[in-house]
Nucleic acid binder design. Structure first.
Length: 232
DNA sequence: ATTCCGTGAACGCTCACATG
DNA sequence: CATGTGAGCGTTCACGGAAT
């Protein structure tokens, strides 16, 4: 996935959930939209080098969007809209072997009365529902999800188990937007219930796929799969 | 049949306020 | 005083109805 030209700056402070104060390299201080609703644990330290994109869309309150942060010698993609776009692109390119025999990809597909999953693949042997999660947290070579207790994420795992019970494929796909990790685990120290649900889900047939993306100022690309460690 | 536009849901944290 | 509930934060995207 190609990135638009990005501006470099230093993070002054994440002001609140959707906003960050940044000093661009030309000295201008801006407020940028922060397209990440998570806690961004380890990715929002004041003083970090960051990259922002610039939007010309009329009516937009803040022109700049925070896209990446430099952490531990690598770029980390923090825009939570990226995983959906990137995985969509990767699915269409048939670059993920587990999903290469489907003919149709639909996005934002309703499930039940109150849920929506990111992708539904059809045209293969079994319909396949995929829920994508963005992973920005990593410590000592291990990527972790979630970075905050997530009620909604827990619901998605229950939905996926139900989907499998109905005879479909149910997939939770974690996109790790940083290259300084070799493994993936649920963040039991943050959300033990999520960790429990993830291993229960796998026992009940939900597939866990972990993609790792090379994040550079020019592009974000899925480069490999990581082996998840789900059990205790 | 196609494009345009308004509406609403989603994201998850934080803070104000209400309830016990 | 402790705990719980709800609104609000900015943007994108899908959707449905209206206009072309």
């Amino acid at each position: 996935m190609k990135m638009p030209p990005l501006l470099s700056g230093i993070l002054i402070k994440r002001i609140k959930r959707f906003l960050a104060e940044i000093r661009l390299d030309d000295g201008e201080e801006i407020i940028a939209h922060c397209p990440n609703s998570g806690s961004m644990l380890g990715c929002d330290s004041p003083g970090s080098r960051v990259l922002v994109s610039v939007s010309e869309r009329p009516g937009r309150r803040y022109r700049h969007t925070w896209e990446m942060v430099r952490v531990n010698g690598v770029w980390v993609g923090i825009n939570t809209l990226v995983p959906n776009r990137l995985i969509h692109e990767t699915l269409l390119q048939r670059r993920l072997a587990a999903f290469s025999d489907y003919t149709t990809v639909r996005r934002e597909v309703p499930w039940g009365a109150h849920s929506r999953l990111d992708f539904l693949l059809s045209g293969g042997r079994r319909s396949c529902y995929i829920e994508v999660k963005n992973v920005t947290l990593a410590q000592a070579g291990v990527a972790y999800f979630p970075d905050a207790v997530t009620e909604r994420g827990q619901k998605h795992l229950r939905d996926l188990q139900e989907i499998v019970r109905h005879g479909h494929r149910g997939v939770i796909l974690f996109l790790v937007q940083r290259m300084d990790a070799e493994r993936f685990m649920p963040a039991r120290f943050i959300d033990p219930e999520y960790a429990r649900l993830l291993s229960e889900s796998r026992e009940n047939g939900v597939e866990i796929v972990v993609c790792q993306a090379l994040v550079t100022p020019e592009e974000i690309t899925v480069v490999k799969l990581l082996e998840p460690t789900v059990s205790v």
